[in-house]
Each structure stands twice: as structure tokens, then as C-alpha cells.
Amino acid sequence: MKWFRQWAQKSPWILHYNAGSCNGCDIEILAALGPDYDLERFGVLNRGNPKQSDIFLVTGPVTYRSRERLVELYTQIPEPKVVVAMGACTATGGVFRGMYNVEDGIDTYIPVDVYIPGCAPSPQLLIDGMAKALEIWVQKSRDIEKPHRLFGGIRKTLHYLDRRTMAQTLAQSKEKEPQ
């Protein structure tokens, strides 16, 4: 899988969801995707499909009606996924905090990896946050592969997982490990 991993790590696609923002953050995302800031040089593409996305970029303080969609979209994104909260109001509710239809930030519903501060954050900050998100994303993909590496890679005999050999390799590697 090594040859494949090189590509997989480099081109994360983002899913942008507006959970009740004022559009200020959304137009900054568009500006960042434009040629002047060029977020695409990190391989980041804006795709509207949650099933193909890796980074979930949320703006807005989460309104009462958008919370279901938010969780739904979050669950539809395959692992490993990174959640980026853009803007002050996504982090805490910002200026909308305490309004009757607002749920005060997205971390009441889904776990967040990167918070981008500001109202509205400048595209430079967004790029900074995205670079951070990429690091976390690479780390998360490594973590997913960890069980495989523990067993010293996947062994197969006639299309079936050869658990016995894998367990043996594991035991051998443990013996070798200097305590």
C-alpha cells in the first residue's frame, strides 16, 4: 500500500457546510480557493459530496435547524476525517451566542480538530488552519494503519487473512524488542 499512500496523503478534499453563518466566512473560503491564495496547491478541492471528502470545513454557529444536517454530514464522511471550525461563531457562537435559535458553536455536536479564530478569518489564517488540518489528517491516517503495522503487515494465504502467521510475527517482534 505504500505507493498508494503517497497520493492519499496529499490530496484531501473538503466538504464545506454552512451551519448558519453570516456568509463572511464563506466568501473568504471562496477567496482562498481562488488564484490569489490558491488553497488548491495543497491538493485541497471543494467537493460537495460528503462520501468523497476528508476535511469537514464548517462555518456558522449551528442553528437549530442545521444541527441535524451537520451531524448527518459528519457521519457520512469516511474515516479518517478532520473537522475544521472556521470563524469565531463556529468556535463559541461568537456574536450570536445566546440567541434563541443558536446552539453556541459546533463542539456541542461534533468533535473539532482545528479552530480558526477571527471574524472573519483572513484567507492567510484559513491556509494556516488547513495546513494544520493536513498534519492532523496524515497523523490520523497513520493511526488507522497502526493495527496492521503491529502485526507486521497483512499476510494472506489463498485470499484469506493468515492470522496465525501474523500472530507469530507479532510474537517474534516482541521478543526482539529491547525492554
Binding site: 448558519g20 464563506d26 442553528t63 442545521s66 444536517r69 461563531c89 450570536f96 434563541y100 443558536v102
Partner: peptide, 30 residues
């Protein structure tokens, strides 16, 4: 109605009149 937040109500209950200009600016970023 997905992005209804209740700005009008908050402008007349939580915020004082000199703060409201900042709040209503967040009705729309454009």
C-alpha cells in the same frame, strides 16, 4: 429558514443600542 438565528430578537433584548450596529453587520457578510 435553515440559517435563522434570531438576530432581531437579540437586538431588542440582549444588546444595548450602541452594540447593535456590530450585531446587525453579522446578518450578512456580503
Amino acid at each position: 429558514g435553515f440559517v435563522h438565528r434570531g438576530v432581531e430578537r437579540a437586538c431588542a433584548s440582549t444588546f444595548t443600542f450602541d452594540q447593535v450596529a456590530t450585531v446587525v453587520a453579522r446578518v450578512c457578510g456580503l
